[in-house]
Design a protein around this nucleic acid. Sequence first.
DNA 1: CCCGATACTGTCCTTTGGTCCAATAGCGGT
DNA 2: ACCGCTATTGGACCAAAGGACAGTATCGGG
Lengths: 201, 201
Amino acid sequence: MPRWLEAFPQATVSPAGGIGKKPSVRTLVWLRLDDATSALDQLTALQKSVGAAAVIVLANQPDNEQALVLFSAGVRGYCNAHATAANLRQVANVVQAGGLWIGETLMHRLLASSQAALARIPVAALPSAVAGASGDRLAALTKREQEVARAIANGSSNKEIARQLDITERTVKAHVGAVFQKLKARDRLHLALMVNGQRPA
Amino acid sequence: MPRWLEAFPQATVSPAGGIGKKPSVRTLVWLRLDDATSALDQLTALQKSVGAAAVIVLANQPDNEQALVLFSAGVRGYCNAHATAANLRQVANVVQAGGLWIGETLMHRLLASSQAALARIPVAALPSAVAGASGDRLAALTKREQEVARAIANGSSNKEIARQLDITERTVKAHVGAVFQKLKARDRLHLALMVNGQRPA
DNA sequence: CCCGATACTGTCCTTTGGTCCAATAGCGGT
DNA sequence: ACCGCTATTGGACCAAAGGACAGTATCGGG
């Protein structure tokens, strides 16, 4: 059961940086997708009724293919419906500033497949582009932190990591906490998704 | 000359490296490319010295192919070196907010070639595709269970899922438990890895 | 010699996650 | 009417996770 989400008065927030910018008030419309089936129909209907306003889609279950279709149809933003208020405000800022909001995984795929098309190389042969990005994240960590980060990305619990590295579970927690801070991960699951190259929303 | 820039007010953004709830002051580094030859080398050198800062490339002669390469290398923005101050400020805002800045023509190409590539390649052949592999595992679950499984794979907490599906956290736990049993996952992190096609060791 | 980074450990505490015991209600098939 | 599956929720309980304070020790530079 699709229903719009109009609970967003943030349509006219000022740009993030605070640097004086032209208001150039752009109307934002949020479209919440509960089921993926009629996404495009919902969008076109909405576009008819709101005209030139910038449409941002909130998907309960983000899907890259769907996102592609919607962007081609003129959507200005696509993100997880469950994003935090802060996130949505950020999205609003960007779209307000004349931008598109796209998920990082989708972005990677766009880049990858585009490069592949250009180089006439099969898409499957390009794991390096994405893998490189995820490996870089760990570069900011110390040796020990990298070890626990990889262990977490593998699904290990703190206790297991402690046994693996032959240290106390307490110490593991210390490292884990440091990793969270440095990589801005909110919990181990998000960290795992990050390290494995599937950025959580 | 800067005809490139005419069609400019178009940016792309991804919820990258952690959408900050905090001030999240992101350091911006501008890299001006005078000759295109050593672009990648200059970039990697710069990245080494500035660490995790967001790099924005200013190209004297913008080139879509070059932009692709640089974005894959982790650049957060790419625009004409002759852009006006106002434009650059806009770029800064977007990147500051955690986004990528991409020219409109390049954006169109990305979308177009990606769609073309996706249309030609069978779903089963996609690399770390989202729908294909995960769909099989989720097939054994009920509709509701699939929804919570996907949400978990996305990094959502029980409370978040509860809000998403508009049910009690308690009910979410019930579904989560059922999913764990059916898919033989020992916790949500393992489930996420399974659904995303990275089976935990 | 002090300072910063790294590694390691401790306690107290709160929040989440997960499992166990239930119960109620709808819906479709036999 | 009965049965099985699905969805929903409640309470209790315990383990794991993570933050908020700590602390000690080593090592390489300025």
